[in-house]
């Protein structure tokens, strides 16, 4: 695929958003709160209700900005639509996550919404739920056992972030990647999009070996890893650090600040307020962040569930728009998504 075709397909994918997600507003430039209020009003107009339904909200964890926002929004939305939410937070413990899904099979809620999780760990549980005739919806989990997955358009935001990186670097330089994301499909897509863009910029070199983030203690660990990397790549030898989410680059940016390095820029995805603030800070070496709308993603999942109960046919994926915040517009984006 040449670059022009690539851009055309990106545009097509972008145009597909509105068709795929009737719940989602074309709200790229809107404040999240306003978009949300409007979507809520739309849900009310559509007569969506979960009255008398018990919905299990199962999340891989809630310690990151994205997780807690998406998780809390789902619980709030279930209650707002008159349902009862069973909130299950696995606290990033795989044994707990598998156990809570197993217990749900016997518990028989009216539906389950799974937020995140490595596919090999969650999918057997989702399959068991589906086989027990319990409808499964997901947030950021691509599984054939789910009726619908609510997610950002990771293809588009991954490409946008990659293009921003390429543009900031002037098409050449050395970059380091955090890539310990196997099994987490949204993150895999963002990495694939980066690679797709970089294919056309042969003067950008990915230094080896890749950095491998860990969970938990991600920030502390990435701080240490990047500090070590900086001594290996002195000024002028490294230009950017990229991660498929923004907690590792939050640690990376802090390491750059601590080392007084302004020649390296960081790039990430999610929109954790601390990281967006770094992108907005002209003195911090943070290049750009794709800001997701986890609150709206969570609410979209619940509204889709209500639509399903109302007999509507749903697309397999509902894309929720993300906004790219770079050094020029980050303050504006902070205002739009209600972070300042």
């Amino acid at each position: 695929m040449d670059r022009r075709t690539f851009f055309r397909s990106s545009l097509l994918a972008g145009a597909g958003l509105g068709l795929a997600a009737p719940a989602v507003l074309p709200g790229l430039a809107r404040a999240q709160g306003a978009a949300d209020a409007e979507a809520a009003a739309e849900a009310a107009r559509a007569g969506l209700s979960l009255a008398g339904k018990t919905i299990a909200i199962s999340a891989v964890g809630t310690e990151h900005f994205f997780d807690i926002k998406a998780y809390q929004a789902q619980i709030d939305e279930v209650e707002r639509l008159g349902g009862t939410a069973i909130g299950l937070d696995a606290q990033r413990n795989d044994q707990k996550l598998v156990s809570q899904l197993q217990t749900l099979v016997g518990q028989k809620p009216d539906a389950v919404i799974q937020t995140l999780g490595a596919l090999p760990i969650v999918d057997p549980g989702l399959k068991a739920l589906r086989e027990a005739d319990i409808p499964v919806f997901t947030v950021d989990v691509v599984s054939e056992n789910a009726i619908n997955n609510s997610t950002s358009d990771n293809f588009s935001l991954g490409a946008q972030l990659a293009l921003q990186l390429v543009s900031d670097l002037g098409g050449k330089g050395n970059i380091a990647l955090f890539t310990a994301i196997e099994g987490v499909v949204p993150c895999e897509i963002r990495l694939e999009q980066l690679r797709a863009v970089l294919k056309y910029y042969p003067e950008i070199n990915i230094i080896q070996p890749d950095l491998r983030e860990i969970i938990p203690n991600t920030i502390q660990d990435s701080f240490q890893k990047v500090t070590a990397l900086l001594s290996q790549y002195p000024e002028g030898k490294l230009d950017a650090i990229w991660a498929s989410w923004d907690i590792p680059v939050l640690g990376a940016t802090q390491a750059l600040l601590a080392a007084g390095r302004k020649d390296v820029l960081t790039y990430g995805v999610d929109g954790t307020p601390e990281y967006v603030a770094l992108v907005a800070d002209p003195n911090a070496p943070a290049g750009a962040v794709a800001v997701q709308q986890p609150d709206l993603i969570g609410r979209t999942a619940v509204r889709n569930l209500a639509r399903y109960f109302a007999g509507e046919t749903l697309p397999s994926t509902s894309f929720v728009p993300a906004i790219l915040a770079n050094r020029q517009n980050a303050t504006e984006v902070q205002k739009q998504v209600g972070q300042i």
Binding site: N93, Q95, K96, A118, P120
Partner: peptide, 10 residues
């Protein structure tokens, strides 16, 4: 789990 897990420290 059907997989190795990175969270055994838990």
């Amino acid at each position: 789990l059907g997989a190795s897990s990175t969270g055994s420290a838990e």
